[in-house]
Design a protein around this nucleic acid. Structure first.
Lengths: 218, 218
DNA sequence: CGCGGGGTTGATCGGTCTCAAAGGAAGTGG
DNA sequence: CCACTTCCTTTGAGACCGATCAACCCCGCG
């Protein structure tokens, strides 16, 4: 039903905003291909990316009920996105409560991811934090079949990674080198390979259960 | 209807856990009085508080759909809490879609708060971050009538505040002193007074619209 | 061939942490 | 009513992590 509801797939070029802070979109956007991210800009020009969206994720499911966007969203790579009108979502919420609960669940999982980011930013070193993010991306991409042989596409610049981690681009560079020399990852071009998943997860104190990828009655 | 659904109000002593990581509660907890917080513990003993719950907030609405808690929650002050069984919530979700949307909205607002925390932790100085949190608490408490004459109860220790901000207790102390000497706040005992709200909000780059306290059709 | 974006490197600065100790304030038992 | 305890706040000193600034390199591309 959701697939039938997503209409007008369209392309968004790399670096282009999908929506802006203050927008009141009449529909929700689904990411079909590519990577996107939510972010907020500060007066001093700094940027914080607060979420990374992978294929299959909603970009702004919150706009259905929140109405006014409190953040922007950007295509990190070229993306194809679809939209589901708020009217359709309302129809689902009225007549398909089980599906509505699953949509609700996706926002709960987004919240769980946010909290993990908070923990990593607040109480972990830059190295652990970076390792953490890579573990998370690994598992989320694995869930949608985008990991092959412990490798996945990581088409972010180090500066963008820094904006997600709350670090400077220079420091990200040094952290990545450390992960490389420790033999935990390789990252050439857009392809990141996890060379030692167990060690990486241990360094990041990573446990994927919060993503709710297991099947349960809801 | 929600008021009718919340049953068995009970007291929780200060410092006592309301739920633990790994729990699978059969009901959701509502905070009726007092302050509570969600947190995660790390292997090295550090703690990160990822949310502060104020009277009227759900403590773990996510347990309705997520089932297994990925964090603990603690009473920061003596609390009285009520519970709403998952069965009741399911009944609401099946037969009262409008109410279900409003519950969904509360999780979206929680997510918005989380993202703001991320921005503050990632890209703001300790001073700005602290100012930010105080602004947020001010507005949220104001919305439930717990602010009088620019004052509200802040019954946290500086160490707890640090766990929410991702700072050490020592540094929190120095930041608070700075906010005091700048004439922005006073904080004696459990009462915090915002002496210059405009300046504090400006320092924190704070805009309350993300809390969705305005009335809109949902 | 020149240009531009990203990656890499070095040097220095500064914000925040850590460790350690001293100073209140509130409660407890004698 | 006082000594004692405990928890929290405050202060100081030093170390360290990560930011900043400024080059330089590398590679793809027009």
């Amino acid at each position: 039903m959701l697939e039938g509801a997503a209409v007008r797939p369209r392309q968004v070029n790399k670096g282009v905003d999908i929506l802006l802070e203050g927008d009141r979109p009449p529909e929700c956007t689904v990411l079909l291909e590519g990577y996107a991210g939510r972010y907020n800009l500060l007066r001093n020009g700094k940027r914080q990316i607060t979420a990374l969206h992978l294929p299959g994720d909603f970009v702004d499911l919150d706009s259905f009920l929140v109405k006014r966007m409190d953040h922007a969203a950007m295509a990190i790579t070229p993306c194809t996105v679809g939209v589901i009108s708020h009217d359709t979502l309302r129809e689902i919420s009225e007549n398909h409560p089980h599906l509505a609960r699953l949509l609700w669940l996706t926002t709960l999982v987004d919240g769980a991811i946010n909290r993990r980011w908070l923990v990593a930013m607040g109480r972990r070193s830059a190295l652990e934090h970076t390792a953490y993010l890579l573990c998370e991306l690994f598992v989320r991409l694995e869930a949608v079949g985008l990991v092959t042989e412990d490798s996945f596409k990581l088409p972010l610049t180090q500066a963008e990674l820094g904006d997600a981690l709350g670090l400077s681009n220079v420091h990200v560079n040094r952290i990545i080198q450390e992960l490389r020399t420790e033999g935990l990852i390789t990252w050439r071009g857009e392809t990141l390979t996890v060379e030692d998943r167990r060690l990486l997860q241990q360094l990041a104190e990573f446990d994927p259960s919060f993503l709710c990828l297991d099947r349960e009655p809801r």
